Simulated scan of single mutants.
Amino acid sequence: MLVTGAHGFVGGHVAAAVRAGVYGSDAQFLAAPEGLDIRDEAGLAALIEESKPDSVLHLAAQSFVPRSFENPRETFEINAIGTLNLLVALKRSGFAGRFVYASSGDVYGRVPESELPVSESRIPEPLSPYAASKIAAEQLCLQWHRSEGWDAIVARPFNHIGPGQDARFVVPALARQVVAIASGKRPPVVDAGDIDTTRDFTDVRDIAAAYASILRHGRPGRIYVVGSGQERKVRDLLWTMCELAGIKAEVRQDPAKLRPTEQRRMAADASLLREDTGWSPSITIETTLSDILKYTRTHP
Score class of each variant (00 low, 15 high):
210 A>R: 00
187 P>T: 10
60 A>S: 06
225 V>P: 01
70 E>I: 09
251 V>T: 10
188 P>I: 03
11 G>K: 00
13 H>N: 12
36 L>A: 06
140 L>W: 02
264 R>K: 14
28 Q>M: 05
178 V>G: 06
51 S>I: 12
89 A>D: 04
86 L>R: 02
76 F>T: 10
12 G>V: 05
118 V>G: 07
273 L>E: 06
6 A>Q: 01
214 I>K: 02
8 G>W: 09
299 H>F: 05
91 K>G: 11
126 P>Q: 12
281 P>H: 07
59 L>Q: 10
238 L>M: 04
205 R>M: 04
152 A>Y: 03
288 T>S: 12
119 S>L: 06
248 K>G: 10
33 P>Y: 01
111 V>W: 06
65 V>D: 12
270 A>R: 02
276 D>I: 12
235 R>L: 11
179 V>Y: 05
272 L>I: 12
77 E>A: 13
6 A>H: 07
88 V>M: 12
22 V>F: 04
57 L>Y: 00
232 R>Q: 13
26 D>A: 15
144 W>D: 08
261 T>L: 15
281 P>I: 12
5 G>S: 05
270 A>T: 09
99 F>D: 05
57 L>T: 06
24 G>N: 03
195 I>C: 13
275 E>F: 07
172 P>E: 07
129 P>K: 02
5 G>E: 01
72 P>R: 07
208 A>F: 09
55 S>V: 03
29 F>Y: 11
67 R>H: 13
225 V>C: 15
91 K>T: 09
89 A>E: 02
162 G>W: 03
183 S>R: 08
95 F>C: 01
212 A>N: 04
299 H>I: 08
125 E>I: 14
91 K>S: 15
216 R>V: 00
271 S>N: 02
220 P>I: 08
179 V>R: 00
104 S>T: 15
53 P>Q: 08
160 H>G: 08
271 S>V: 06
234 V>M: 14
153 I>R: 03
239 W>C: 04
151 D>S: 06
111 V>R: 10
256 A>E: 13
146 R>E: 14
84 L>A: 15
15 A>Y: 08
258 L>K: 14
52 K>S: 15
191 D>K: 14
144 W>L: 01
220 P>D: 10
266 M>A: 11
